[in-house]
């Protein structure tokens, strides 16, 4: 029987290294997503999937396609900054593919208006603010006769709320 090569321990070590190296590369190949972006180090398909999330709010333009009359009224001061969906809720609850699916939401009580216009110390001074009872008698004499529940919308058209 021939004596074993004096370097056999080295060959064995080399073999182990090669096996481990190949195993590492195989696992890495398997674990790396196909669309991996090596430049910015992320899965390329992630942005495609993120962009595919369904829209809930449509924006004013989607409302205007049907409600041209309201849009015209609304464009006047001072509620032109307020989007339709701020008060009416998202368009997915109301229409789908240009067809009405349900009546649009609107809260006609005073709470809807006071959500923004209730007086609060954190609100900017110039922003129109009213107390819960509508106590701005000093400014608007008509408000003196108000009770606590009469909706603001009884007198003010919300799309064009000028007195």
């Amino acid at each position: 029987m021939a004596a074993p090569s004096p370097r056999s321990h080295l060959y064995r070590l080399l073999l182990i290294l090669v096996v481990f190296g190949a195993g590492f590369l195989a696992v890495k190949q398997w674990a790396t997503p196909d669309s991996w972006n090596y430049e910015h180090w992320y899965r390329g398909d992630a942005v495609v999937e993120a962009a595919a999330q369904p829209l809930v709010y449509g924006g004013n333009d989607s409302c205007k396609t049907c409600h041209k009359d309201v849009a015209k009224l609304w464009r006047k001061k001072p509620h032109r900054k307020v989007a339709c969906e701020t008060c009416h809720g998202p368009i997915v609850d109301h229409a789908k593919a240009g067809k009405k699916t349900a009546v649009a939401f609107i809260d006609k009580t005073r709470a809807q208006c006071l959500n923004c216009h209730l007086e609060g110390i954190n609100r900017p001074r110039a922003f129109p603010q009213f107390s819960k009872q509508g106590e701005i008698g000093k400014l608007v004499p008509k408000h003196k006769e108000l009770d606590a529940v009469t909706p603001c919308a009884k007198c003010h058209e919300a799309h064009d709320p000028r007195p």
Binding site: A51, Q53, L55, V56, Y57, G59, E85
Partner: peptide, 21 residues
Amino acid sequence: TWCYHRVKNGKLPACVTVCPN
């Protein structure tokens, strides 16, 4: 996400859309 799906569809983020002031 700054509403990535909305911006990619030419819309503003939802919070920007509804901000009344």
